[in-house]
Design a protein around this nucleic acid. Structure first.
Lengths: 229, 229
DNA sequence: TCATAAAATTGATAAAAGTCAAGCTCTTGA
DNA sequence: TCAAGAGCTTGACTTTTATCAATTTTATGA
């Protein structure tokens, strides 16, 4: 790993206040790797060997059962994933694959656990990271259990537009297939949901979305601080 | 609080290996209270003042949006709840109410954060507790997104029977209303789901359930280690 | 023990979501 | 530039789930 990359990682909230020596110990055994899109990084049920950190790109966390698959989370830089499995020295509950070409830092799980036990600052960093993930997971669960598909899409679009500058024009960051899976519906249903939203000023052209009637859309979506942030 | 109660709490994995002095500091500001059933302990959106620990009884974590309500988790002794909000010094994402008469220990949030910062063992205990919750939340999300209502009920019954001794006879721990909400369906639908399961050997009489054909039920339910544990 | 309320069930209907099949549209690489 | 394939959309239909209304059952306290 190059020095400038190490320095960038050091800045992350997770590592920022930990001891220099412990940081070195963590980084020494780590690998920084570039993966092509669509590559399976982790399979659910496997033991947790490495803590993963997305430095660049995007990773999709998916789960399977009943011959069905669903996308649970999309992980963007700079974030860890599968922290809980590493921490508990247990198997992964989700699979992970790159959504696009991605640079990922692999930190050996036993090193993470060892350093955590002796560096309180690092343990606190992990605690905060994990607390964030727990809350994201609870929000996702609320979104899924309390809203219909159309409502989930409407809120997703409002949030997306806000993140991209609230200009009323935004761009989907993923495949519609992936988006459908993330929103908990089939691709066919996503198409129809976009159709339903047309009367609320949502125009779709490929991945480009324009929201020309945010008031009506918001009335339909009923965004909630405790779900959408 | 009585000495024997303090001793019992001290035994919890969360507190077991922490420093005596720090433990005393935590306990000193805490209250142990008994609440009647159906009492609202926490409202979603409120700032996190206390870490709650269910010593006896049962607490339901619910969330609301769109004039709908859903039960996200049932917390049984001896477990903490709303740890993440306390940790992040943020608002609660869920409301909490007692399902039955319950004894609950209330630990001031700022004390928790202070002790956590200076006692590494306690921080590690919190980390494990939180990792457990995160994983429960992910399992719940998988259950919700990958299964139909009937499948969720079937798996719930198989797990319940296993927990209660795998005798093929078990007892629902909650109202059917509450169970329906927990399983992500309406009470009417729960009734019909029980009806559907009759042909798989599920007999219902009030809260008493008997499973006379576990093989067929299991074929339908397709339990998964990574969802049902 | 009975009256009352709450909980649970059942039926009828509607809405939401999934499935299957066909066709369209956009890449993308030869 | 075009052909192939993947991604997306649309239509017809089925399944799943919710809603509303009416009963029945169960629990509870006077």
């Amino acid at each position: 790993m190059r020095d400038e990359e190490i320095a960038a990682i050091r800045e992350l909230a997770l590592f920022a206040s930990m001891d220099e020596k412990n940081f070195d110990e963590l980084v020494q055994g780590s690998y920084l790797q570039i993966f092509p899109p669509g590559l399976q990084l982790i399979s659910e049920g496997d033991p947790a060997d490495f803590l993963h950190i997305v430095i660049e790109g995007c990773v999709e966390l998916v789960a399977t059962a009943n011959k069905r698959e669903t996308t649970l989370f999309m992980i963007e830089p700079v974030k860890t994933f599968i922290l809980a499995a590493v921490l508990k020295d247990d198997v992964y509950l989700m699979s992970a694959r790159t959504a696009i070409r991605s640079r990922i830092l692999l930190v050996p799980a036993d090193a993470v656990r060892q350093v955590m036990a002796k560096d309180g600052e690092f343990a606190l960093g992990m605690l905060h990271e994990l607390a964030n993930y727990y809350r994201v997971s609870v929000r996702t669960l609320k979104n899924q259990k309390l809203r219909t598909g159309v409502e989930r899409l409407a809120n997703y679009l409002i949030t997306l537009d806000t993140l991209q500058g609230a200009s009323g024009v935004c761009k989907l960051p993923h495949d519609k297939r992936t988006l459908a899976s993330y929103l908990g519906m089939t691709p066919e249903n996503l198409s129809r949901a976009f159709g339903t939203l047309a009367q609320y000023g949502v125009e779709v052209s490929g991945r480009k979305i324009s929201l020309s009637n945010l008031e009506d859309l918001t009335v339909l979506a009923k965004p909630e601080k405790l779900i959408d942030g």
